[in-house]
């Protein structure tokens, strides 16, 4: 918006100059002081010189001529200097105008100052690293992570058991089926085989742990690898019933202490 207007002004000035040129050297004398250029001074000099010549060779005229030349020189200097200064000021004015326009655009639409309380924070919604999640969400994620890590540790132990040969990689058909029979499951033998992979066992692991030691002793082939309920520090939220049985309060990590306290209140092994 601004630049075109500046150009227009310049064009206007050019037009004026053109007009003056058309008016001949005398036109310079009709200009306002602010519009005078060095060129105009030369025109004035030409006009004055011509008229002085017409006055003849009177020595008083010659005297006057020197003074007039001196005045014109001074005028020329002033006009040149003024022109440069005016140009510099014009540039500065333009840049300041642009700055003002930019600042006005950035300013909040209304009200101006936002008064925040002492415990408030301003969040830049365009910042990809801005705070987003709540404390509760972080707690839940952590608990889930811890539960998964506990399961991973169990699975690793189980794997090491198999690797070290403590648990035979394949249970004998008789032994296995007896154990299976202890915990009835509506599955066919084909499905059962698939279940033996660690991946499929994992989700059931906490549940089995929750059954405690007696269950473990009853089902050695399966439970043997579980480190025990005490080793499962955090319970995933899906273990709601187990957690309640273990007297774990929500949001609190279910520690060995909690588990033992809840299970064997009468014994009070831990303080």
């Amino acid at each position: 918006m601004e630049e075109p207007r500046v150009r227009e002004e310049e064009e206007d000035e050019d037009e004026e100059e053109d007009g003056e040129d058309e008016a001949g050297p005398e036109g310079a004398l009709g200009k306002s002081a602010l519009q005078l250029t060095a060129e105009d001074v030369y025109d004035i000099s030409y006009v004055v010189g011509r008229e002085l010549m017409a006055l003849g060779s009177d020595p008083r005229v010659t005297q006057l001529q020197f003074k007039i030349v001196r005045v014109l020189e001074l005028l020329e200097a002033l006009v040149s200097e003024g022109g440069l200064e005016a140009e510099a000021l014009r540039l500065e004015r333009d840049s300041l105008r642009q700055e003002v326009r930019a600042l006005r655009g950035e300013a909040p639409p209304a009200g101006g100052q936002v008064d925040l309380g002492p415990d408030k924070m301003v969040v830049d919604l365009t910042d990809p690293n801005r705070p987003r999640f709540t404390l509760q969400e972080l707690k839940e994620v952590l608990q889930e992570r811890n539960a998964l890590k506990a399961q991973l540790l169990l699975a690793q132990e189980e794997l090491r058991c198999y690797q070290s040969g403590l648990i035979p990689p394949r249970e004998g058909p008789g032994g296995r089926q007896e154990k299976e029979a202890a915990v009835p499951r509506p599955r066919s033998a084909d499905h059962r085989k698939g279940e033996r992979t660690i991946m499929k066992k994992l989700p059931r692991c906490p549940g089995r742990l929750g059954q405690g030691c007696k269950a473990a002793s009853r089902r050695p082939g399966v439970e043997g690898t579980c480190v025990g309920q005490g080793h499962l520090p955090p319970r995933p939220p899906t273990l709601g019933s187990t957690m309640r049985r273990m007297s774990c309060t929500q949001g609190q990590p279910c520690s060995q202490l909690g588990a033992v306290k809840g299970k064997t209140k009468d014994k009070k092994i831990w303080y």
């Binding site: 030691c213 269950a215 473990a216 002793s217 050695p220 043997g224 025990g228």
Partner: peptide
């Protein structure tokens, strides 16, 4: 065999 898991399960 059963004692092994017992120890494990409870340790």
């Amino acid at each position: 065999e059963s004692k092994r898991p017992f120890s494990l399960g409870c340790c």
